[in-house]
């Protein structure tokens, strides 16, 4: 059993030139990564970008076509058993048996990982309590909600106290409360237990809130990497978003805003431009709209987001690239985006 307590343990992930081909498709195209121990690394990208394929290779579920990857100091190809003993993973599709109870799953996981018989029951109860499933522990999983299955999946990933945890889109399909609860637990794992977290997500807020560093992947290649703040600073300038009060004035508002910057995508009725002069340009925008006698229902200054970073690097919006709608937006608890 691997324990996170060992300060000498290697909790890093080091990837060099990792490639995975599927017949004619190159899903992962020579990526390099370095994730330090205790870090939360957000791996952001649209559907089909190569996030899950990367996770499958790093968790030894899929052999790479070429390149190398070391997880917890072990090579994923040659030291598979040691890698698996060091990591926990909650994959995109929670692989649960509908005919087993939550407690059965934890017991199975503990047995597979070689936890001594006497400790299994204690560890199982502790984790059920931690993810809030104590009351449902003896119910078959086929009766669990999506959120309960995700929480059980997270508990299963923690059974053997792994040094590194892979979470592949852990909050997809969850309601707001469940997402927030999972975020809190993930942050606690990294902060208090020193566990390295490799988190893939399509949700910008998730990466923004949780990740110490973010890697953005598109079409199998990493197109940007850094802390969320560094990446947004690369974009630098904020954007202004105006919603005309009257639809017939949309063209005129667009012309006025075009004087102050280049257009960027916005909400359905919004007209948005990236301000050439930064925040100080906002006053000029207000004056120009007023001089033209245009009334707007809403005028908003937005700081750059990770979607802006994605747009700048790929020419496409991350939110639209995956072909799926973003679920209800959750306001980040620690960082404001708008002002």
């Amino acid at each position: 059993m691997v324990n996170a307590d060992s300060s000498l343990a290697d909790n890093s992930i080091v990837v060099e030139g990792l490639v995975r081909d599927f017949k004619t498709l190159r899903a992962v195209d020579g990526i390099d990564l370095h994730v330090d121990g205790g870090e939360i690394y957000g791996f952001l990208g649209p559907n089909g970008a190569g996030k899950s394929t990367t996770v499958l290779m790093l968790t030894t579920l899929l052999p790479p076509s070429s390149g190398t990857a070391r997880v917890a100091g072990f090579d994923v190809v040659h030291d598979g058993p040691k890698v698996r003993a060091s990591i926990g993973a909650a994959l995109q599709e929670a692989a649960l048996d509908p005919l087993l109870t939550g407690r059965d799953h934890l017991r199975l996981q503990a047995t597979l990982q070689g936890i001594p018989r006497g400790d299994r029951s204690t560890r199982t109860s502790e984790l059920l309590e931690r993810v809030g499933l104590s009351d449902a522990a003896d119910r078959k999983v086929k009766g669990y909600s999506g959120g309960m299955k995700r929480r059980l999946d997270l508990a299963l990933a923690l059974v053997h106290r792994p040094r590194i945890i892979f979470l592949d889109e852990p909050t997809t399909g969850l309601d707001i409360q469940s997402r927030m609860a999972l975020w809190t637990e993930v942050a606690r794992l990294a902060k208090e237990d020193g566990v390295t977290i490799f988190l893939t997500t399509q949700y910008l807020e998730e990466a923004d809130v949780l990740a110490d560093r973010v890697g953005i992947i598109d079409q199998g290649k990493i197109v940007a990497e850094g802390t969320p703040a560094e990446l947004k600073d690369e974009i630098g300038r904020p954007s202004v978003h105006a919603t005309p009060l009257r639809a017939e004035e949309t063209q005129r508002v667009t012309k006025v805003l075009a004087r102050f910057g280049d257009p960027v995508p916005g909400a359905v009725r919004d007209i948005a431009v990236r301000l050439r002069d930064g925040t100080s340009g906002l006053a000029d925008v207000v004056r120009a709209l007023d001089n033209e006698g245009l009334i707007v229902a809403n005028l908003e200054l937005q700081q750059p987001t990770l979607d802006d970073v994605f747009l700048a690097k790929t020419g496409r919006s991350l939110e639209g690239a995956g072909g799926e709608e973003e679920p209800d937006s959750v306001s980040p608890p620690r960082k404001g985006r708008r002002r």
């Binding site: 968790t59 030894t60 579920l61 598979g80 058993p81 040691k82 698996r84 003993a85 993973a89 994959l91 599709e93 692989a95 649960l96 048996d97 996981q109 597979l112 990982q113 070689g114 299963l156």
Partner: peptide, 15 residues
Amino acid sequence: ETGFARRLLLASPNR
């Protein structure tokens, strides 16, 4: 077929 084998492959140090 149901994907449960993936859990076994992932959680089993010695497959």
